[in-house]
Design a protein around this nucleic acid. Sequence first.
DNA 1: GTCTATATGAGGATAGAC
DNA 2: GTCTATCCTCATATAGAC
Lengths: 226, 226
Amino acid sequence: MKQGTRRSGGTKGVRQARSDRSREQILRAALDLALEHGYQGTTMAAVSTRSGLPVGSVYWHFKGKEQLFVALLEHCYEVWLEIHSGPEGVRRKLSRGITGLSGADPEHHTKEEALLKAAAVWALSRRLGGLDEDSEVRAAYLRMRAEMFKVDVERITESVPADVTERFPDMPTKLTVLSLAFTDGFYVHANSEVHLDLDFGEYADLAARALEGLVDDFARRAAEER
Amino acid sequence: MKQGTRRSGGTKGVRQARSDRSREQILRAALDLALEHGYQGTTMAAVSTRSGLPVGSVYWHFKGKEQLFVALLEHCYEVWLEIHSGPEGVRRKLSRGITGLSGADPEHHTKEEALLKAAAVWALSRRLGGLDEDSEVRAAYLRMRAEMFKVDVERITESVPADVTERFPDMPTKLTVLSLAFTDGFYVHANSEVHLDLDFGEYADLAARALEGLVDDFARRAAEER
DNA sequence: GTCTATATGAGGATAGAC
DNA sequence: GTCTATCCTCATATAGAC
């Protein structure tokens, strides 16, 4: 057994336990480093140093840098799924997404969530300094992004009045896209070191108000048609 | 004279003319390559090949890769300034910004504009795979971004009703930030190769409607207070 | 000013002892 | 499973002839 495959079941030997711990140490180190230096900026040597394990061990657990990051993304996605359960309206979503950028809301912004946000940028096309088209990391992230989008749509659907969704079935999808665009856009701003004086809380409110206004607009139209 | 300095005036010798042409060829090659492969993906060797000039020449005209890209950004910024003159409301701005993403509006989307958009991503923090904090390219871009933001605010101010700006003086700034966030957010989406079926024209309209609703909201409030 | 050959350094990955 | 020494590739940059 090697690289990624784990003992299917039964008793865990002491060696196995130690191996698992090494694996986790490596992933942990990769997570920290990736948040500090990005994908390209994270070297296998650095992962080795930070994890306290030699390079050889890293390559024993993961076939290469790509596989390491795919495993890391999978871990983060699992955490994301655990956190994001239960209904959530546009307002709350925007508030979490935008306010969280200022770092003012650390308890709701885990490292894992932060990494997924960062990965969104890594996955941008090559032209933008993103990963290669055939990168496994990129492919893995895009799969997850699609899944997360679905979850978002479902949860936003629950927050939109029934008569609106009845008349405009794709409204929740549109709202999700718009609020995602908002969040991503502010994410870019927050990481551009321009306009440091932005009050993200205020903008989250403005953004929410703008989208809620849109929903009201459609609600009015739905009501008029009766 | 060397590297970036140009003859101040007077008659241009034949050698000078040829040198200028070489410089332009190099910049042109860099522009094309940067749009295809990004900053990191553009190698000096490739610039040399594409421009038809040897590596040595490239390093004669520009001290290094950073200087080359700073010069490129300056060129693009000049083009941007020429294009973006005259008033422009939020709607038109969003329409240009978002619809342009689909590539459906090529005539209004020059290579230079595209490069500035790409540079916004390059300038993201190191954690996101962006340039180093002390990168000259990054610093140059951030200066330009601040300038472009100012221009945007001025032009959006002209499109907001006078009574609103009177009562809420920072409304134009907020609108600019929101519409920039929208544009940047959709830019991320457009380059993520997810939801390829997005109708950017429709979303540009929705986004514009949402922001216009916000303005109306404030206009109502301003009116009520009289 | 233009060109070729080459120095330099970084990072991903492997070999093979233990 | 763990560790060390080493290889390979590739990109920036320079030296120096013309």
